[in-house]
Design a protein around this nucleic acid. Structure first.
Lengths: 216, 216
DNA sequence: CGGTCATTTGAACTGTATCAAAGTCGGTGG
DNA sequence: CCACCGACTTTGATACAGTTCAAATGACCG
């Protein structure tokens, strides 16, 4: 986990200057969370917005019968937490040691610059969620895994070497598959020569073009 | 199709007054679309926001290999079209004869009242999309159909009698199932006594409580 | 009525889940 | 430094939900 630095310039959006003169990256309260620590819980009041400074976060949703769903993963520079009206529909946990900045939503809304940024992030989030929807409803298991890997690679800004800060169970719950199927599909992609596993969490993408083709 | 009036007071949110004194319901250009007519296309510039006045709209996404995905259905009073950054990721079509109001997004953003409303709608949309995500990733076929029916019933404000302005294929593509499975699950719910079909598009919900239990 | 399109029903197939077991890795203590 | 432990991951065999293909039924409309 130690080598995971998503705070690379490629991954983070440019700095924005708020009207108060503070760079938005440094606004709000800075908080640190350990691996698997909870940032907020399902059903909790959603009056704060978050931004990843370094590390990674997952949002999860537990159904009454114990089925688990992972809503999204967030990396350095990305906003999250505005997914709901008043109460969080998801809980958020750190995937590894993670630093975030937290801001009261009402304060954010008082600053035109920040509000714009929040709006953009929310629309972006919506777009990503729609992609996710498409993935879940209309893709086969291999396609899901291939899409996931290329998405991770892209967001980490390094298209050839992907690092996965999350375990197989998280991936499975994100893709709507079982852990076994995820494992098998990664195996299959490797057998077909699209990827190469350095270890379970570091994957080298051999032929990005071809892998993309498996994404439908 | 003739009897479908979603412009009932129960379905539509209260009127809002914009700073310019116009009720927001009547703002923008009024347009009428016939059944299956396209409001906007995938990849088209997304500089307009829409609101259903009467009728119903579906958004669809076509994958390269022909697989089809229905993103959402919209009824009277609901906003749509702000799902993306610059270009629409979905196309929008009228499910039946439909009236909408169209507004330039830039104009909407100049009016604080409208902008707030748009924000609320977008966040609501995001929440609904997350529900949809959960449905697609972690529900069985029966659960999907049961959830769909209760959702439709709720949004139409009549929990006992659901009217479906869309065909089975649309439902299937919305739920990530095939048309045959949708049909079978509706049949099953009927056999189990949860619902009763008046005709293919009018469904009476017998025991809402029990039907909800099938929604996980 | 007859034709077209949408929906339902039936039978066989398949992708993914489930259940079970064997590896693999990273950390810990001797 | 090595041996062991526990958690995570991979692999294998079987089961089943949902798909696919095919045909029948039903609804709508001239």
């Amino acid at each position: 986990m130690r080598d995971f630095q998503t705070s690379t310039p490629t991954a983070a959006p440019p700095l924005y200057q708020s009207v108060r003169g503070e760079p938005i990256d440094q606004m709000g309260v800075r908080m640190t969370f350990a691996r698997d620590e909870e940032l907020y819980a399902q059903e909790e009041d959603a009056d704060l917005v978050y931004r990843v400074v370094s590390g990674a976060v997952r949002t999860t949703c537990l159904m009454s019968d114990g089925r688990r769903h992972v809503g999204a993963f967030y990396f350095a520079g990305e906003f999250f937490g505005m997914e709901s009206g008043d109460a969080h529909r998801f809980s958020a946990e750190a995937l590894c040691d993670t630093v975030v900045t937290v801001m009261k939503r009402t304060i954010a809304e008082r600053d035109v610059q920040i509000e714009r940024l929040l709006w953009t992030s929310t629309v972006q989030e919506l777009a990503r969620t729609h992609e996710h929807l498409l993935l879940l409803s209309r893709m086969t298991a291999v396609e899901k895994v291939a899409t996931f890997l290329t998405d991770m690679a892209t967001r980490q800004g390094r298209p050839e070497l992907v690092f996965l800060p999350m375990g197989r169970q998280d991936i499975a719950d994100y893709l709507g598959l079982t852990i076994e199927t995820v494992s098998r599909m990664i195996g299959q992609l490797q057998a077909e020569g699209f990827i190469e596993l350095q270890d379970t969490r570091h994957i080298r993408v051999r032929t990005r073009g071809s892998l993309l083709k498996r994404c439908a």
